[in-house]
Design a protein around this nucleic acid. Structure first.
Lengths: 331, 331
DNA sequence: GATCCGTGAGAAACCCTTTTCTCATGGCCA
DNA sequence: TGGCCATGAGAAAAGGGTTTCTCACGGATC
């Protein structure tokens, strides 16, 4: 293991003091151009990289943030984390990852460890928007941002705009000339189910289409449920010509069931999913038209918002609803 | 934002020097028991927490490790990361998360940022065992451990024992009295496909059962493929009574297809999956018997191995194959 | 009563970098 | 020729801890 090169080494090699070396490398202070260039050249030759710890000690900024999640399996958290990491690296910020499950003591240990390490701020993220993390982050000495999980009212919280997403899905179906549009979605215990269902109903109404409570079918987030829902729908009369599904798995079940009944998608029925889970959406036959929540972008924004708070810049408090995108494929 | 309490505050409040305060709190040095207790009590009352940055500066240990991943969607990486985080927090170690996708420049920036922050070591992990990260980690000033991704030969690399896992699956089928066992698996371009297929064949042979190359069906990692494979298998004569699937999604497709054909699982055919992806395995009807790769445990071990390297303890180099577990459910 | 030694605590140095303050130098102006 | 000022660079302190070394004190020993 090679010894690390310190600024003392650079200063000695360039024949100057560490003060001068520091100023040369940070482009501060006043000095002859030749001196600055010489020091920089020496530093480069020696492969000098400043010790961020020592630097943080004086600057009071560690260029480090903590990321708390209660999710170990979900597929929503990873893109959010990737977005955070990607959005912050430009500013030289690194991200501490902490998985806390539902364990309050563990969460506290992690938060304390992060604070001891002088994180500049903390991002809380989770597997379910309507479930808070098992730890109170509201009186910390650093700013906190919430992404994909609820925070206290006065906090900055970023979530996908379910209303706009659902609206876009239904509007797309209407634009395809569909008039009898049903909504097959997940369990009523999820907040997103209500929001999407509400937006669905409003959009129909705005288009002058009939809204029927029975046209909202709640079940589980599974292919099976999509399959079963089609069985129910096609057992009565008055079959729909458009189906807005609460997620891509349901949509896939719906499409498979339709094909089994020789109902052509998209000729006879148009289907729109939710999530743009590529491994599902692209495998469907035909490939699934669906709503992308832009989770990576959400993560990036969360990171940037946190840095603005850290820098003392003004940030609008409250719920930020980030736009979803309709991804048109073949269904 | 409350001001942070430093050891100077503690020392002043207790009427001692910072040297004495430090020794009292770290249980080092010699001093009267009353002095030590008094300092500790004062520290507790003031809510003193040492600044880890300042501490790291002298100790040369940051109690921080870097975690590199190229995965932003996969479902394998998250449990590994959770295991690492969980395994290291006991030692007060925090984990820097870096997502590098397939971008070598980005990866280099992240690695440099971590080294600047004086990480004690680095863990590389990825979405696919047979694909390396887009950055060379072999000449770093800190130790490196690879988990779920290939490292150079002399490195410590942790992967699930696919041989043992596949063996356990097939042995379970044999123990159920099955004799005509086929293997429906993923694309031949994946190394795990070869390993599992090889173990499958060997286990059959060891049990004195016929091994037929045509009994290994390679396709995609999807339910659809499981479905299609059953269609193929049941179109000929000589149907199998046991099916070992390359992952849970395939297994689910297989089981669904069997039910559609009125083939009873597990009465007529036993099915074993791979991955123990609970959202799939538990939703299957009947619930899926499958192989759990214990990824969280793998992550934990990776973290512990890295800390042993950091502490200069002996660690066996090379490939560590960690045992998989058969999870018996209803199939 | 002088010497010795163990004890408890503090002074100071160190980790690495940044930043403020000071100072020597030399050119310019009066 | 003396005083001023701009310039370039270094000394020193700070940041928050840890660690080594030193020292004052009091009791035991001879």
């Amino acid at each position: 293991m090679p010894e690390r090169v310190t600024i003392y080494d650079v200063a000695a090699a360039a024949g100057v003091s560490t003060a001068t070396a520091s100023k040369a490398l940070n482009d501060t202070g006043r000095m002859a151009v030749e001196t600055r260039d010489r020091i920089r050249r020496v530093a480069r030759e020696l492969g000098f990289r400043p010790n961020a710890l020592a630097r943080s000690l004086t600057s009071k900024r560690s260029f480090t943030v903590g990321l708390l999640t209660d999710d170990t399996y979900g597929r929503f958290t990873l893109p959010v984390m990737a977005g955070i990491s990607e959005g912050l690296i430009d500013q030289g910020v690194s991200v501490f990852l902490c998985t806390v499950e539902d364990n309050p003591e563990l969460a506290k240990v992690h938060v304390d460890a992060m604070l001891d390490k002088q994180v500049d701020g903390i991002i809380a993220t989770g597997k379910r928007i309507d479930k808070p993390l098992p730890v109170d982050l509201s009186h910390l000495p650093v700013p906190v941002v919430y992404a994909l999980t609820v925070g206290p009212g006065e906090a900055v919280t970023l979530v996908p705009d379910d209303d706009q997403g659902a609206r876009a899905a239904v509007e797309h179906l209407i634009a395809q000339g569909r008039r009898r549009i049903v909504h097959v979605t997940g369990p009523g215990s999820f907040r997103v189910v209500h929001e999407r269902a509400h937006a669905y109903a409003e959009t129909l109404q705005a288009a002058g289409l009939a809204v029927d409570d029975a046209a909202i079918l709640r079940g589980s987030w599974s292919e099976r449920w999509g399959h079963d829902a089609v069985a129910t729908l096609w057992s009565g009369k008055d079959q729909p010509d458009g189906i807005f599904c609460g997620n891509d798995q349901i949509a896939r079940g719906v499409i498979d069931a339709l094909r089994e009944r020789n109902v052509d998608v998209p000729r006879d029925v148009s289907v729109v999913g939710y999530d743009n889970w590529e491994i599902v959406a692209e495998q469907t036959r035909p490939p699934l038209t669906t709503i992308d929540m832009n989770l990576k972008e959400l993560g990036r924004q969360a990171g940037l918002a946190l840095m603005r708070l850290v820098n003392g810049e003004a940030v609008e408090k409250g719920l930020w609803k980030l736009p979803c995108t309709l991804v048109v494929r073949g269904s």
